[in-house]
Amino acid sequence: MADPVLSLRDLRIWYGAERGAVRAVDGVSLDLMPGETVGLVGESGCGKSTLGRGVLGLLPEGAGHAGEVSFKGRNLLDIKQRELRSMRGPELGMIFQEPMTRLNPLMRISDHFEEVLQIHEPKIGKKEARNRSMEALRGMGIPPTRYKQYPHEFSGGMRQRIMIALALVLRPAVVVADEPTTALDVLVEAQILRILADLRRNFDTALLLITHNLGIVAEACDRVAVMYAGRVVEQGPAYDVTTKPSHPYSRELLRSTISLSTTELHSIPGAPPDLVSPPPACRFHPRCPNAMAVCAQQWPPTEATSPGRRSECWLHATDRIPVGLEQPLQREALAASEEA
């Protein structure tokens, strides 16, 4: 197997807030292989976006960090801002949720592309730049006749595709896409998902796709990492995780998704914890239907449940639970109102 293009080791990103440190990302280890698409799912407030930005070395002001984000043998968190900026584009790309705010309304689409290409590849000729840009746009379904138009002449879906094309025109090694289709309509979303799914065949770009929609994960991702309260509780091939989730949180999240085949509503009791003072030990234990006494007292081990899959849960290390702590956890029932 190839070496990962990007690997996170015990990454922690804590925000400062008046009440104390917000542990948005708290001990995440994850690998991105060249050309693969990894989905990052979880409820809001679980640290998905913080992790996504942290992967690119974009830390919010006043955030502390530990661990490493190694990319081509270097820790991105230690690199100077100036150098990091020059890496964004040719090495690291980002696709945001709201495309309109990222395009300059006074610049033609062609200017956006040519500017990006000229900054990062100064030797590129005008003709070459044009061809590369049009090729990238074609791949995203933007007709070449519209190359000279301004951003406002495009619809929301087209702008998002232009943003994706713009992020990919330099062929970066890693792209983070933060909810790229959330603001879009179903049919347009499907078009973009198809484009993203095609990407992994045509490019070597590794894509970290942040989403709350498990349908998108099943559709467009090779692997998936399920995040809860700042930690990746389960990761593995998208097919396996979406068909046979091994962590109770992944299972509950999947069950609570309303899809066309839903015949019965299901929801997870309670709400994601306050990340300033998360619950001790396993962070999911207050909401977990399978919680045991040990879950509230000792950190669950990270177990490989099958090749390429890891799950952070005591259910997969029952042989190591201290004697007397296997019984179900006694706790007060959560009121219906204690929800997210």
């Binding site: 179903v186 198809r194 498990l214 349908g215 998108i216 099943a218 979406t242 899809s259 085949s261």
Partner: peptide, 11 residues
């Protein structure tokens, strides 16, 4: 066009 969480149903 609805992406279903069932990986056996591709778009």
């Amino acid at each position: 066009a609805i992406p279903e969480p069932d990986p056996d149903k591709a778009l």
